[in-house]
């Protein structure tokens, strides 16, 4: 925004008087102000407030919240809890695995839909159904599928003779994690598909024409035309998914309640519980701020990895 403004300003400065420029700049900022205030009120202020909370011991008193500054004590307490590090580890590996699989599957499905001749829009709509469902509802649906007594999944697997005894999908650590990941991948892959589909549509047809004339086969065309052109879209889809995956809350909240034990307790669940069940606001804020820092870190790593690839492509 600011760069565009500068160009605009310098352009005007060459031709008109300085007063006109100043007037335009003022009008520009004036128009930005309402949106700026809203962003300040609903985004910047709560973030700063949370950070401030995390450095205080907070008691609820008859006069509302009472803050007592206690430095990094909350962070020291949070970082000395094995449960916190367990949640960090779960959130990190859960995010990496699900986002990687979603990007891979999403790419495959996007390519398939791109090449569908008939009923293209129908297949897009069908594909989008999981994404359009409210997570809590789809999680409730998955809990019926995974139920260890009357679950659909066990019935199908038993009917087909793959297993003899019911599997306790959400009741055992390993299968609980797999079950969560499967439900998440089912739900959010369509989001990746939609982003990648729009990316695919922006690739000029001439590129494929040229590849064909050069005698490239399908595989070569994909690696030399499609994939390099799609990197930007993949980066965007990946970024959005990482942001969401690190904040995973509703799915384990419904499906496993963070169990068995604390196997599937994500950082967001830990933060929510500390804040709203245990009413330890300072500790909860420290968990929340730590989560934000972790997410920012993950996004920076992901983007810089991708920027390397995009830069390569630009040459």
């Amino acid at each position: 925004m600011s760069k565009a403004m500068e160009e605009h300003v310098s352009f005007r400065a060459d031709h008109g008087g300085a007063s006109v420029v100043r007037h335009d700049v003022r009008a520009g900022f004036g128009m930005l102000t309402p949106a700026g205030i809203v962003i300040l009120a609903v985004t910047i202020f709560p973030i700063l407030y949370s950070v401030w909370m995390s450095f205080n011991n907070i008691q609820l008193t008859e006069n509302g919240f009472q803050f007592t500054f206690n430095g990094v004590q909350n962070y020291a307490d949070v970082y000395s809890a094995p449960l916190f590090w367990h949640s960090v580890w779960f959130t990190v590996y859960y995010s990496i695995v699900t986002v990687a699989i979603e990007l891979f599957l999403g790419l495959l499905i996007a390519l398939a839909i791109q090449n569908v001749e008939k009923l293209k829009s129908v297949s897009i709509v069908v594909m989008l159904i999981p994404w359009s469902l409210i997570t809590v509802i789809s999680a409730e649906m998955w809990s019926y599928i995974y139920n260890g007594v009357y679950g659909v999944l066990n019935a199908i697997l038993q009917g087909m003779g793959f297993i003899h005894n019911s599997i306790n999908w959400t009741g055992e650590p390993f299968t609980a994690v797999i079950a969560l990941m499967a439900a998440d991948i089912w739900k959010t892959t369509p989001f990746v598909v939609i982003i990648l589909l729009s990316g695919l549509q922006m690739i000029p047809k001439d590129y494929y024409e040229a590849a064909r004339i050069d005698g490239a086969n399908g595989w070569q065309t994909f690696w030399n035309v499609t994939f390099p052109q799609l990197r930007g879209s993949i980066a965007i889809a990946g970024l959005f998914r990482i942001l969401q995956a690190f904040g995973i809350f509703d799915l384990p909240f419904v499906l496993t309640q963070g169990g068995p034990g604390s196997t599937t307790t994500s950082l967001a669940m830990l933060g929510e519980e500390t804040l709203f069940t245990n009413l330890h606001f300072g500790l909860g804020a420290a968990v929340a701020v730590s989560t934000v820092i972790l997410i920012l870190g993950a996004c920076v790593i992901f983007l810089s990895a991708f920027r390397g690839m995009v830069g390569e492509e630009a040459q």
Binding site: N147, V149, G171
Partner: peptide, 11 residues
């Protein structure tokens, strides 16, 4: 049942 470790009251 094994899955009793996922049961709340309704289940």
């Amino acid at each position: 049942p094994q899955s009793v470790d996922t049961f709340q009251e309704p289940q």
